[in-house]
Amino acid sequence: MTHTAPLGVAVIGAGTMGADHVRRLDRAVAGARVAAVADLDADRARALADPVEGCAAHTDPEAAMAAPGVDAVLIASPGPAHEAALLAALDRGLPVLCEKPLTPDPEGALRVLAAERKLGGRRIQVGFMRRYDSEYAQLAALLASGELGRPLLLHCRHRNVSVHPYFTDASLINDSVAHEFDAARWLLGHEITAVQVFRPTPSAQAPEGLSDPQLVVFETDGGALVDVEIFANSGFGYQVQAEAVCERGTARIGDAHGLLVNAAGRWGGPVDQHYLTRFADAYDREVRAWVDATRRGEVTGADAWDGYAVAAACAAGTEAQRTGRRVAVDMVEKPRLYRD
């Protein structure tokens, strides 16, 4: 169904990501409005909803989805709450943009896939925003062109200034390397088949109990190898970089060659401190593309299968962390709905 009026969106989750999306939908994306906000914290939901004209605050996600004027759902709640919200949205036939993860585990993702398949068409887009970053898009187009030949290796770096004290080793995979799992699948056009994790001596800046940094290596069904340096407490900035090594050349992104200053015997430039600034444009493009596609009655971007594939890779990655072994990624056969 095509929407001619602004798309009414229920935003589920009023934390950092949900608040950023409410701001984006209210001020930066044409053709959409925030019709409802839901959060378990009633005060936080009201604080986010009250400044937005015509926006209702709820503590129950299903009540927000059922609010007047809601045409679509944006899920930005913590990962463990995603499955219930997704199933509720699908039960209403509502299109969804779900921040990653689709679900924290592949079993939950399969339940979501089954519910979506019952509708006979796709309703879910998963928020892997790197697909909308201009540098990642350029790299994807270059690799798809075949100009550099077959991709052989993909070197990735994912560094944070610091992470929350509750971060665990598994969080490094599920919350951070998950992005590299999707980016590698998208850039290379391969599925991930096995994962192995290596741990150097932890940094002195790592919180007690967190093995940081780590090196995650995975294999693909196209014969490429991908390595990811995940350094959650680098202390200096937020950096995401990737270099593809191909048969006839290499291509690298993420060096942030913006303003460079030469002064006082030194040269250099700023380093982003947060993912919301590093990928601000990508988030804008992602939500704008979702709104436009939804108003046309279409679903584009990463789909529920992509969310499931990343969940399966994360399960293998955390098992590889725990055991120190190479762990194969266990996946079901891709359903017809997601092959087109």
Rank of each mutant, 00 (worst) to 15 (best):
F167C: 08
A309C: 09
W186Y: 15
A302D: 01
T2K: 15
V197R: 07
T193P: 05
E219C: 08
P95K: 14
P151N: 09
D227V: 09
A14P: 05
A242Q: 10
L86H: 11
I230A: 03
L152Q: 14
A264R: 15
R27L: 12
N262V: 15
L97I: 04
Y338T: 01
G15L: 13
Y275A: 14
C156L: 12
V11Y: 01
R295H: 06
T220W: 08
V177Y: 01
E116R: 13
V217K: 10
E62V: 14
L276A: 14
A76S: 15
A47S: 13
R130Y: 07
A30Q: 08
R325V: 04
E208M: 07
E243W: 02
W290N: 00
T16D: 03
L210C: 04
Y308H: 08
A38I: 11
M17L: 15
I173K: 06
D133I: 07
A81Y: 12
D284N: 09
M65Y: 01
R24W: 00
G269F: 08
S171K: 09
A170N: 10
R322T: 02
L276V: 07
L142M: 12
A313C: 12
A10E: 05
F218S: 03
D212V: 09
P80H: 12
V329P: 05
I12G: 04
H21Y: 14
V271T: 15
R33W: 02
C314L: 05
F181P: 01
V226F: 05
Y308Q: 03
E62I: 10
L94Q: 10
D133M: 06
V177H: 00
P104T: 07
G237E: 04
I192R: 11
L139N: 03
Y338M: 11
H190W: 11
A289H: 09
R157M: 11
E333K: 14
P335K: 13
A115P: 07
R150V: 11
L337N: 00
A184C: 10
E62Y: 05
T294E: 00
G54Q: 08
T220A: 11
G209H: 08
A232P: 00
R336A: 15
A293W: 07
T277Y: 05
M331N: 00
L110C: 05
H82S: 10
A5G: 04
H82R: 14
R46M: 05
V197Y: 02
R266E: 02
V126K: 14
A36L: 12
L110I: 00
P106W: 04
A328R: 14
T318G: 01
D330Y: 04
L40E: 03
A282M: 09
L139P: 00
T193I: 11
P213N: 08
G149H: 07
L119P: 00
A184W: 03
H274W: 08
R296Y: 01
G127C: 11
E147C: 07
A76P: 03
L143T: 02
A256V: 13
V126Y: 06
A244L: 10
G317Q: 02
W290P: 02
E191W: 02
G79V: 14
E286V: 00
A89D: 00
S203V: 04
P106N: 07
L143S: 04
D105P: 05
A311K: 12
T300V: 14
W186C: 06
L119T: 01
L276Q: 14
G301A: 10
T300R: 15
R336Q: 11
G13N: 08
G237W: 10
